[in-house]
Design a protein around this nucleic acid. Sequence first.
DNA 1: CTGAAAGCGCTTACAG
DNA 2: CTGAAAGCGCTTACAG
Lengths: 379, 379
Amino acid sequence: MGRPATHDVPRQGSRSGPVRLADVAQAAGVSRPLASRVLNGDPAVRAAPETKARVLEAADRLGYVPHVGARSLRSSRTGLIGLVVHDLSSPIYLELMRGARAEAARHNYFLVLGDVDELLADDDAFTIFISGRRVDGIVVQGGHGEFDLRVDEIAHALPTVVVNAPTAESDTVTQVFPDEVAATRMLTEHLLGLGHRRFGLVTGPRRSTTSLLREKGIAAALADASLELREEDRVHGPWTADAGRAGLVELIRRWDGDPQRPTAVIAGNTLIGIGMLGAAAAQGWSVPADLSVAAVHDTWVSEHLVPALTTVSLPLYDVGVTAVRTLLSGTPGGTRIELSDPPPALHPRASTQRPPDLGRARHDPHPSGIEKPAGGGPS
Amino acid sequence: MGRPATHDVPRQGSRSGPVRLADVAQAAGVSRPLASRVLNGDPAVRAAPETKARVLEAADRLGYVPHVGARSLRSSRTGLIGLVVHDLSSPIYLELMRGARAEAARHNYFLVLGDVDELLADDDAFTIFISGRRVDGIVVQGGHGEFDLRVDEIAHALPTVVVNAPTAESDTVTQVFPDEVAATRMLTEHLLGLGHRRFGLVTGPRRSTTSLLREKGIAAALADASLELREEDRVHGPWTADAGRAGLVELIRRWDGDPQRPTAVIAGNTLIGIGMLGAAAAQGWSVPADLSVAAVHDTWVSEHLVPALTTVSLPLYDVGVTAVRTLLSGTPGGTRIELSDPPPALHPRASTQRPPDLGRARHDPHPSGIEKPAGGGPS
DNA sequence: CTGAAAGCGCTTACAG
DNA sequence: CTGAAAGCGCTTACAG
């Protein structure tokens, strides 16, 4: 407002268009290289303080902003980091993205978004993204089987960090991931502490590294109590709410008439957990009275669900931060960083409580799949 | 794998480092400009088809990828669009982001992420983002009061499109937003059709344009039925689940003992709706038996809530698509595009049904804030 | 330490 | 239509 409706920046002398370094140098009465060095804070500069001040003042007054393209052409530094994501709708990955973005900003870097599926489908996009010297490095969300296979290829062209899902060892790829084992161990110990002795699990694909680590944490906690997770109490599938719903329905079917049926079910992630809460309600099971439910990952929605969902949070924001920091610090490839600080944090909520007394009353949920209305409720 | 562990690309002749246009031209036996023109599909090129093919083949074989910095220096086109977002955790904005990203990709553009709060807090970041010729244009999520004030400033420097929240008319800014009025009208008509006659509303800030438009849609539908939304049945606040929770608690307090109390409450967005479902449960109100709840925006979580949440979806993905398309088409500033196609879509789910018969039974919810367990449920 | 010169890789007026 | 030349704006060896 109050400024002329033009895309040009206020200018000096007769030349129109954006202010260049040369304009600043001229205005400050110094050479172009010196202006560049002062502006970039080169510690080797010995110019008088007032000269430096004059350069800074001129740049400020003229509204000088370096042309990032020219800079990157000369110095082959773009100030951009590529972030390759799977699924922009998942609240889980978003935390990671937020952390990466914030840390990038701290270093005056910006993030360029890439989508796994699209990069896989469009070879040109893939190439331009990776090799167009468009970005100085890449952060990839691991755990996408097909894309993981190409990460090594990317890492040969650019510094690359895979976050969140450990993959095969590699000489070129750096990996940053949270302590998955500690997380599910913590969740399982919470349930053990409440008195549960038999557990169900609905989680991601059987071959997923993340699934394996999470099952490992559960197994470790159970082993300490001389218990184990039976094969028939596990369901593997996609990391989605729909899969969570289907998974619990399947488990309930398997448990039919079993007086020793599990009293607590762990969800491999929050989406699965949300689906399980829906399935429980649809099947006429009350959570937590009939069944405790707990999930990996704490998201904004966890505490607002009915019942509020017990979760364990992994430091995803910090994983994002660490990934970018590692990338920019020039850490050599092949490093594997398991983030143990901050540790996973338990968020006990209404969806978990002590187990029901299955011995006393026979277990027989409503046969109908519809939850009965609460009898008119507050009327 | 199988490739040498080096950041260099396979090369031609003695020169190391990435393949340049000159390398391609040489390999194809043409001049640099001609190679450039062929590669960029310049229709004016009259070279023999086999010459063109030789250039393309050479580029492909050598793995040529243009240096985007050099290109942008010369042609002042960066191939990047800035996307300025408020809140990376909101599932609502994500749809918009997904659409913008997909459309950008279709034009071989990538998205650079900016964060409203950070750009406001860090003047340098703001300047570099806006004026570093880092991006060719900017898409801004409107509705952030403080940032909206600076949009005009941005639009003077770069083509700018504001999405999702109409702001003041402007000569420079282009706006793209969905038909908010039609959406809440549709939602309200759904509730009217079920038999509801008095309504509550928990929505965003009173001065928010989006709030105003959504209230306008409700008012329009009610006016058709010779009804109106009373002032005392509205609560304004942030667009968050916490605010939804607090809002419904407040409404329930106001309705205490009112035999004519509203039987349906509209949530200004899904986050608010989620908070309301939680509040209803905590207050011992059954949704939909005691109260119907419906919300604006359909997200992945809507159908998985308990009860599943009735919503109206706005074409946010398409808003993102249109924003980018408008930006790249060079549409002059000042254009306002209200997206009426696709129209809002109603998703009727379990959270809405016919109103309870308030006349018959006196309304008196459980005094305790705790929902009673379902009496042992399936035991 | 500083300045004059070179050059990053590309595209686009400009001649031919 | 095509090629030789220029030049986008910056930073960095290289002399001094």
